[in-house]
Design a protein around this nucleic acid. Sequence first.
DNA 1: CCTTTAAGTAATCATTCGATTACAACAATC
DNA 2: GATTGTTGTAATCGAATGATTACTTAAAGG
Lengths: 238, 238
Amino acid sequence: MSSVAKKTAGTGAPEKGSTSQATAERIPAAQRRELILEAATGVFAERGYAGSTTDQVAKAAGISQPYVVRMFGTKEALFLEALDRAQGKLLRAFRNVIAAYDAGELAEELQHLDPAAGSGRPEQLKQLMAIAYADLVEDRGILMMLMQAFVSGHEPAIGARAREGFLDIYRLVRDEAGLSPDTARDFLAQGMLMNTLIGIRLPEVYEQDSTAEELLECTLRSKLPMVLKASKAQRRAG
Amino acid sequence: MSSVAKKTAGTGAPEKGSTSQATAERIPAAQRRELILEAATGVFAERGYAGSTTDQVAKAAGISQPYVVRMFGTKEALFLEALDRAQGKLLRAFRNVIAAYDAGELAEELQHLDPAAGSGRPEQLKQLMAIAYADLVEDRGILMMLMQAFVSGHEPAIGARAREGFLDIYRLVRDEAGLSPDTARDFLAQGMLMNTLIGIRLPEVYEQDSTAEELLECTLRSKLPMVLKASKAQRRAG
DNA sequence: CCTTTAAGTAATCATTCGATTACAACAATC
DNA sequence: GATTGTTGTAATCGAATGATTACTTAAAGG
């Protein structure tokens, strides 16, 4: 997805010799909004709310800083929207698993589950959702965006949203997947551990530290190779 | 420097008689250092690294902002020292439990453990350390200070230190308490969940939200009343 | 007393950052 | 082709913040 109509990189010279326009390609506001939210999710996930600047988001989205502010009003409003979006993606991922399971579409995946963990619907859904959660690590923005919100409870608006969002996830796992409170708690705890391991960038030292290797191995299991690959890609891009 | 300009304000203002004490009480630098670290832990725990200012730390410690900076050099150095201190307290708390257990000093506490969770040394130590961890919530600064470090992996110095610190804790739990990797992982996961619940200030809505009530109940168990009390105290302190 | 040292602050500086303003260019519509 | 709304930027402002400088003052030690 790149510019076709405009200059900048369109025809030959990226230099601004001719028309001194540094302006981005014009696209509808609704699409631009989504691009900004995508960029903001990455920036906020990386640096947290206070550690991010609207200019970093603007640069990541390929537009100017005033445009970001004008479109969302304030940095806080932008953060809240990005948070909602990330939470929505997580809830949708879980609901997709549940729906597919109940429709009997996961016969293949069921073969690879740990039989010792139980064969009831809640036990199997728990394992399947854990896999879906680990899949979200590939993006890395979504889970760390949530994590950053979870440690920003001192900001009144963000704290309130984070609380509600976390409880939404708990209720989904309990009511829609049917996990008992204790099982739901264990499920969430595993998720928070994964977030933490990603947050401290443990995959980056996987090869140099055997303790890190062991902990990552027993936390991510079959999803470890994918996470390691995503980590390396992230480092290149960073 | 002692020639002429020395007495600029010496003309009228040096009232030493009673009230207006613009300067803090003079105490040895080593003690002041500890006071600043204590204050910094609370501030960083609350607002994170980027969200905290050296002036907030100074105010919390009852001294001026330049003094904070001069004593630690940079905000980052201050954060790293506070982080070390918090991690040290956590490690010490766990080692105290292990030593007391091995010395047979915990006969009373053993009566209150869940027998269904197993009666071997690792199983009992896991439960005892979980209680010790929850006890640290009372301070609140220590655990959230660590949590804030865990989401600051993008800061090179902090990220490196956070990684090492987390692995130190894992090794302690595995090697000194004797937990298997899987059990150690589950233990850490519960800890990360507790941190998250504290981070989003879930205890503050305990009375208004039955979902929050259930989740807190099944995560903190016997330690819930203490955490609720600490939460209320924290709110009053603001 | 006087000199030295340690503890502490006021003032300020250079950046950074979120937000605002004013404007430019493109596109649709009449 | 003039009008009008949409998409976008440059310039800049005021407040906040980490750090520095220069100073003050309470003790400690002759």
